[in-house]
Design a binder for these strands. Structure first.
Lengths: 188, 188
DNA sequence: TTTTTTACTTACCGGTCGGTAAAATACTAG
DNA sequence: CTAGTATTTTACCGACCGGTAAGTAAAAAA
């Protein structure tokens, strides 16, 4: 956390914005430096490499998302209610923190495909988030509120991808509603 | 369609594979050339620029997708049935043509954000596809089979994004089912 | 047979990339 | 004030980027 105005944090904020705009491999270190108002070499004083800088942004962003999204799920003891709250929190978080949404949207193809080592830490952090969501869905399945033929991990991916791909607030609500109905509707 | 084995087509196929793997701006012309077994300069003999090469791949891919996905919708006169067939065709197309799926997955953030001129043609072609899908959803709404509070364009985006983000065949089916149920479920 | 066009190669260009070494400046303790 | 350390700048590196210039061998057209 430390000082909000420290050089290191200025770099991190500039990096987050730049990564959200152009993706990890689409942005140059000099662009980030210029955005942060520092010389490029100074970034390497605080971060060993571009990859590490990105990973810190990624980690911090997903931590924030997780904290916000699971903040209220603990107070519920019915899994279906946990899920409902999670969806609502997801929408509210993404609405207020658009950069996080855009970073996840930007990099999801890299998470999904590449077995490249440069993406493995990033993917692992993502899978940890997905796992926390899918276990709530799993719980709702055991309550018989969600059909057994729904795969929890696929459903968690769907929630994350669909939400992150949406842009306006209204679109988010609309998509959240479709997914919710799709999850809870019992097959005939 | 000309000769399948022509040099130009070899380049196009290599480009499609490379773009699917690394994205338009993540792949170099020399990589494409090497994949196609030609010299880099020869690519510039057939295509004026990387951007144009990508656009031809993009255009062709979305044409193929559209052709396949709307092939059977004309035979139905109930919009809800059109939509059902569309979802099924989408799944079958993406299963057999994974590269197309990966290209769309890779570039969707660029379509969504950038007002950059390099992406405008690409985005326009995408919007044409989305428009064809959303008009079917609009039709199903007027049949009162899909709730009025569903925004057709958001729903079309959801279908495309969610399907393109999915990987295995089983995951595709699972996600297609959730979206279908979410669309047709009437609000209580 | 001469001319033109097509298909393709080699060699190169200016520019940008991620990253580094070392000098200069600012800060802090004695 | 001074020595040392933490921070920041300047100047640079080799690799690679998208793209081009110039030329060539063979085929097609005249």
């Amino acid at each position: 956390m430390s000082d909000k105005t420290s050089t290191r944090n200025r770099i991190l904020r500039a990096a987050r914005k730049a990564f959200a705009d152009k993706g990890r491999d689409g942005v140059s270190m000099s662009e980030i430096a210029s955005e942060a108002g520092v010389q490029k070499a100074l970034i390497y004083y605080y971060f060993p490499s571009k990859e590490d800088l990105f990973f810190e942004v990624w980690q911090y962003s997903l931590d924030e998302l997780e904290d916000h999204v699971f903040a209220e799920t603990g107070s519920e003891n019915v899994y279906l209610r946990k899920l409902k709250k999670l969806l609502r929190s997801y929408i509210s978080f993404i609405t207020s923190r658009d950069e996080v949404r855009r970073i996840m949207e930007r990099e999801r193809a890299n998470i999904a495909s590449h077995p490249e080592s440069t993406w493995s830490r990033v993917r692992e952090r993502y899978l940890a988030l997905r796992s926390k969501i899918s276990s709530i869905i799993e719980g709702a399945k055991s309550e018989e509120k969600i059909p057994k033929d729904v795969d929890s991990e696929d459903a968690a991916d769907l929630i994350i991808n669909a939400m992150n791909a949406s842009q306006g607030t209204d679109g988010l609500e609309s998509i959240g509603e479709i997914i919710w109905r799709g999850l809870v509707s019992q097959d005939k």
